[in-house]
Amino acid sequence: MAHDTHIHVRSQAEFEYAKKKRADEMKGHLATFAIMIFLTLIAFTMVAAGFSAYLIVPIILLLAGIQVILQLYYFMHMSGKGHGMVAFFMFCGMFVAFITVLALVTIVWW
């Protein structure tokens, strides 16, 4: 493992390109952030406006789900290279999380 860091000095063009790419990506992140703020506003506004609970609950849960996907895939780069196993285990975790919540909200004996 001593030999696993090769220093690669990029040419000016390569460097500029990579930098530009990162800057573009950052713009995407800003847009993502705007969407997240917007979704949060919708959720809070719906509750404040006092719509029926049957309408609000599914919608705000959906909005929360979208926000989480945005966080995972954009801010945390889960779609990036080398994230295959990561995504697999996160989905396994979400699956167990889902059945845990499902069990305790439906079949707990009350």
Partner: peptide, 15 residues
């Protein structure tokens, strides 16, 4: 991933 399950257990209990 493990933390996801941890918080799910807490959410499930809360609900």
């Amino acid at each position: 991933a493990a933390e996801t399950v941890t918080f799910a257990s807490l959410f499930a209990t809360y609900l």
